[in-house]
């Protein structure tokens, strides 16, 4: 029986939440569950091209431990989920507009394109939606 698609909406700038979203998305995708990720609001800052690890993630005490201990990088986990499983990633068109960014401002080879919230929510009706 096919697995229910998983829709993961990431809005938070918090490293912990982006890390948990990346872990959830990548493990679900490699477990033969279709995954569709939508990046919006403050989360978009962590996906900017050309940042160092220190600049990329903002978080609280646990985020500091994640980096200190060398936990798998969240963006690399998203990339592995795309490479090894059935996973798509979209960036919110409104968030790009507000920042005056376009897709070239984002880390390359991670996104399938831009999407509006209405279309994303419509697609998500066929699966389970989780927000971070």
């Amino acid at each position: 029986m096919p697995s229910t698609p998983l829709f993961i909406l990431v809005c938070s700038e918090s490293h912990e939440k982006i890390q948990m979203a990346a872990m959830t998305a990548s493990v679900a995708a490699v477990s033969e569950r279709p995954v569709c990720v939508f990046i919006s609001m403050g989360a978009i800052y962590s996906f900017k091209a050309g940042l160092s690890d220190d600049e990329r993630y903002k978080g609280s005490r646990f985020a500091a431990v994640l980096q200190e201990k060398g936990a798998p990088d969240a963006l690399e986990l998203f990339a592995m989920g795309r490479q090894l499983g059935e996973m798509s990633m979209y960036v919110c068109s409104m968030a790009l507009d507000i920042l005056g960014w376009d897709e070239s401002d984002l880390k390359e080879n991670l996104f399938d394109g831009t999407l509006g919230l209405t279309k994303y929510l419509s697609d998500a009706e066929e699966g389970q939606l989780i927000t971070f």
Binding site: M23, S26, V27, V30, K69, G70, A71, P72, L77, M80, Q83, L84
Partner: peptide, 18 residues
């Protein structure tokens, strides 16, 4: 060894493909 979840699983899956 020394890699945190889900790193070892991802390494396994990438290797299985090959």
């Amino acid at each position: 060894r020394g890699a945190f979840c889900p790193g070892p699983l991802m390494e396994l899956i990438a290797a299985l493909k090959l």
